[in-house]
Design a protein around this nucleic acid. Structure first.
Lengths: 211, 211
DNA sequence: TAGATTGTTAATCGATTAACAATC
DNA sequence: TAGATTGTTAATCGATTAACAATC
């Protein structure tokens, strides 16, 4: 089986999935595409269209059952699957993410941190096990780590990615501003560059400015 | 004047702008759309098409002059413009971004940090001035701060955004997982959700898995 | 049943890729 | 000049929006 779902749809469906979790906690049991859209700032069209990429949701004509829908999405997209993750690069940003509270309820468990600087590994206070960078391939393989965050300086990003891939990593969130080149097309990379976000915002602002 | 440039193009042009900066430092003076594309993992088509949204670059038929091109993009998109920024929410992630090295060379100066917890404000070690969250509107207005990072818990994101907008903020990078609703269409928001990135990667991985 | 809501097909819109004449 | 490269127009592709019959 090889389902194809557009990336934007996938991203929105994840938002819906998280929203449904909140709704469950609030005790809401039924919800319409309209209400989902309103809560997420999207059109009801969009929500229903996205759902159409999933197999049989079940109840045409009636509102969605919050718990069923959430379970269905989780199963279909395997978002509910627990996966192990690691952080490569333990500078300010990396060490913040290492202990990031948001992961605790997320199903993703951060089981290792890596840095090329032995000093950092020895002094950083955390419960998570830390290793020197050259051990990335071994640890990733042995621990069965599937996801990684790269938070190393730009000039170390490529090497770090290669080590992760050697270890068998399957998904990477790259916080470094450099472009990572891979040949494997079974490794997924998503890039986050805070400075670039500022630049893009600044450009939008600039287009509305006069002088 | 009201130039319209698609968001994806804008994002790529920022990447080019940053690349040109590196090339300048390396002493490269001329570069083709082909080489730019190769360095950024994009097609040469794409680069040239993106440039076509800018006004007159000048030299049809000949390679681009690195310095000129960079200056041109900077001027046109006002990316070179210095702007003040602030961080709202000084937990792990917020305080990491507060002192994030990448900003030092970026033209964006972080001039203030905010948190609703007075303890944090008093104990955090930094050269940047810190204030309680209720002062956001005043400080943003008085300091002329244009950009902000929101790194508060989900349930405080909306209030924080409103305070920033009251102060006259013009661009927001939202690291909280909640959707921010605004009516002003002159405030630009870009959302970054690390956990969601993991979910999306996980979903892509899931679509390629069997069981 | 009547009103509301879904799921999907069709229509619009926008972005990417390709092609090529104009320029150096 | 000849080869390389740009800038832009046209063609393809994909995603969003709208519409509506089928369902509850």
């Amino acid at each position: 089986m090889k389902i194809e779902i557009p990336k934007p749809s996938l991203s929105r469906i994840c938002m819906v999935y998280n929203l449904l979790g909140e709704l469950e906690n609030e005790g809401v049991t039924l919800i319409s595409s309209n209400e989902i859209g309103a809560r997420l700032g999207l059109g009801a069209h969009s929500i229903r269209k996205d759902f159409s990429f999933l197999t049989e949701i079940g109840n045409s004509g009636a509102k969605y059952d919050v718990s069923n829908l959430r379970a269905h999405i989780g199963r279909e997209l395997k978002i509910n699957r627990k996966r192990k993750a690691c952080i490569a690069g333990l500078g300010r940003l990396g060490s913040a993410i290492l202990n990031y509270d948001m992961f605790s309820h997320s199903g993703y468990e951060i089981v290792a941190g890596f840095d090329s600087n032995i000093n950092i590994i020895e002094t950083l206070k955390t419960n998570i096990r830390l290793f020197p960078a050259y051990q990335i391939p071994d640890i990733v393989k042995n621990e069965g780590i599937e996801l990684a965050v790269i938070a190393v300086p730009a000039d170390a990003a490529q090497l770090t990615a290669e080590r992760l891939i050697t270890g068998g990593i399957r998904g990477i969130v790259n916080f470094s501003p450099s472009v990572i080149k891979i040949n494997s097309d079974s490794v997924f990379i998503s890039n986050i560059d805070v400075v670039k976000e500022f630049q893009v915002l600044s450009a939008f602002m600039g287009l509305n400015e006069e002088d």
